[in-house]
Deep mutational scan, measured.
Amino acid sequence: GKMTGIVKWFNADKGFGFITPDDGSKDVFVHFSAIQNDGYKSLDEGQKVSFTIESGAKGPAAGNVTSL
C-alpha cells in the first residue's frame, strides 16, 4: 500500500536519492523515473512524499512517488 515519508536527499544530476519512511523502516532508494509529475522529475530534501515499495533489481525501491 501507500506509505509516506520525507526525502532524505536527492541528487538531481544523477537522478536518484533516498526517502526516509514515516514508519521508521529502512531508507528507500528512489529513482527519478518513479516520480509522478509532468514536469521536471526531481525531489527536494525534506519534502514530504507518498510512495509504494516496488522490488527492483537492486532491492526495494520507491514507486508512484507523489509530493504531498
Results as ranks from 00 to 15, higher is better:
Gly1Tyr: 09
Gly1Asn: 10
Met3Leu: 13
Met3Tyr: 14
Met3Phe: 13
Thr4Pro: 03
Thr4Gly: 05
Thr4Ile: 11
Gly5Ser: 00
Gly5Ile: 01
Ile6Trp: 12
Ile6Leu: 09
Val7Ala: 02
Val7Arg: 00
Lys8Asp: 02
Lys8Trp: 03
Lys8Ile: 05
Trp9Met: 05
Trp9Asn: 03
Trp9Ser: 04
Phe10Asp: 00
Phe10Arg: 01
Phe10Gln: 01
Phe10His: 01
Asn11Met: 06
Ala12Tyr: 11
Ala12Gln: 13
Asp13Arg: 15
Lys14Glu: 05
Lys14Cys: 05
Lys14Ile: 10
Gly15Glu: 02
Gly15Asn: 03
Gly15Asp: 01
Phe16Met: 07
Phe16Val: 06
Phe16Cys: 04
Phe16Pro: 00
Gly17Pro: 00
Gly17Ile: 01
Ile19Ala: 01
Thr20Ser: 13
Pro21Asp: 02
Pro21Phe: 04
Asp22Ser: 10
Asp22Gln: 07
Asp23Ile: 06
Asp23Ala: 06
Asp23Ser: 08
Asp23Lys: 06
Gly24Gln: 08
Gly24Leu: 07
Ser25Arg: 09
Ser25Phe: 08
Ser25Cys: 06
Lys26Pro: 14
Lys26Thr: 14
Lys26Glu: 11
Asp27Met: 07
Asp27Val: 06
Asp27Leu: 08
Val28Asn: 02
Phe29Lys: 02
Phe29His: 02
Val30Tyr: 04
His31Lys: 03
His31Asn: 03
Phe32Gly: 05
Phe32Tyr: 14
Ser33Tyr: 05
Ser33Trp: 07
Ser33Arg: 11
Ser33Asn: 08
Ala34Lys: 09
Ala34Leu: 03
Ala34His: 06
Ala34Met: 07
Ala34Ser: 12
Ile35Trp: 07
Ile35Val: 11
Ile35Gln: 03
Ile35Phe: 08
Gln36Arg: 06
Asn37Glu: 12
Asp38Arg: 07
Gly39Leu: 12
Gly39Met: 10
Gly39Val: 10
Tyr40Arg: 12
Tyr40Ser: 15
Lys41Cys: 07
Ser42Pro: 06
Ser42Met: 13
Ser42Ile: 14
Leu43Asp: 01
Leu43Trp: 05
Leu43Met: 05
Leu43His: 02
Asp44Met: 14
Asp44Phe: 15
Asp44Gly: 15
Glu45Arg: 15
Glu45Thr: 15
Glu45Pro: 15
Glu45Gln: 14
Gly46Phe: 06
Gly46His: 06
Gln47Val: 09
Gln47Asp: 14
Gln47Pro: 01
Lys48Thr: 09
Val49Ala: 02
Val49Pro: 00
Val49Ile: 05
Ser50Leu: 10
Ser50Ala: 12
Ser50Val: 09
Ser50Asn: 07
Phe51Leu: 03
Phe51Lys: 00
Phe51Cys: 02
Phe51Asn: 00
Phe51Pro: 00
Thr52Leu: 08
Ile53Lys: 07
Ile53Thr: 06
Ile53Gly: 03
Ile53Trp: 07
Glu54Met: 11
Glu54Asp: 12
Gly56Ala: 11
Gly56Asp: 14
Ala57Asp: 13
Ala57Asn: 13
Lys58Asp: 10
Lys58Gly: 13
Gly59Ile: 05
Gly59Met: 06
Gly59Ser: 08
Gly59Cys: 04
Gly59Pro: 07
Pro60Ile: 14
Pro60Val: 13
Ala61Thr: 13
Ala61Val: 13
Ala62Gly: 03
Ala62Arg: 01
Gly63Thr: 15
Gly63Phe: 12
Asn64Thr: 08
Asn64Gly: 08
Val65Ala: 02
Val65Glu: 01
Thr66Val: 15
Thr66Glu: 14
Ser67Lys: 14
Ser67Met: 15
Leu68Cys: 06
Leu68Ile: 14
